[in-house]
């Protein structure tokens, strides 16, 4: 069902997925720093074509770190809507996955990421090592591939 152009896009997506990184609010920043560390020379994900997108509208993969707070809930939904299909979501860190030691019931918090948007890959750790984050993104690429094949 896929025309030449569409195939080309799918190929490009696989070879060079663009990611958008969104800290959801209830977090300590540790995960964000590790995501940045993945860009620096030791890991250097850019050599694999993984690129940080300047806007969610250009992204294929949304990387969310941290728990959702009441302040940031709507922002998360809006950013998710702005990522074009096909898209994948990676939740990085214990906060995003389960709320971590902060719990999910406290007054400023709204809940874990998967209560608001569908999450495809969970990367546990507090914070996960950059290697683990890269692995999570690779898994997300697989999901993107699968979806294009289906469509």
């Amino acid at each position: 069902m896929c025309g030449l152009l569409c195939k080309l896009a799918a190929w490009a997506r696989k070879k060079s997925p663009w990611i958008f990184h969104l800290p959801a609010g209830g977090l300590c920043n540790g995960c964000d720093i590790e995501i940045v560390a993945a860009l620096t020379p030791r890991y250097d994900v850019e050599r694999f074509g993984i690129l940080l997108a300047p806007s969610p509208k250009h992204a294929d993969i949304l990387v969310v770190a941290g728990q959702v707070t009441k302040h940031t809930k709507e922002r998360l939904l809006r950013v998710y809507q702005q990522v074009p299909e096909p898209k994948a979501v990676v939740a990085v860190g214990s906060c995003a996955i389960s709320g971590n030691v902060f719990g999910t019931e406290n007054y400023p918090l709204a809940g874990t990421v998967d209560q608001f948007i569908p999450v495809d890959v969970y990367v546990p750790g507090c914070p996960p090592k950059p290697e683990a984050i890269i692995l999570g993104i690779v898994e997300a690429i697989k999901k993107l591939e699968g979806e294009t094949r289906k469509s």
Partner: peptide, 29 residues
Amino acid sequence: HVHRGIEKVAEERLTINQVPFIAERICGI
């Protein structure tokens, strides 16, 4: 905007030796 209400959690739910974990997560740096 990143206010997480950790003081409340610590005072209400955690024991003295659990607070260090949440204290460490005040800042990721």
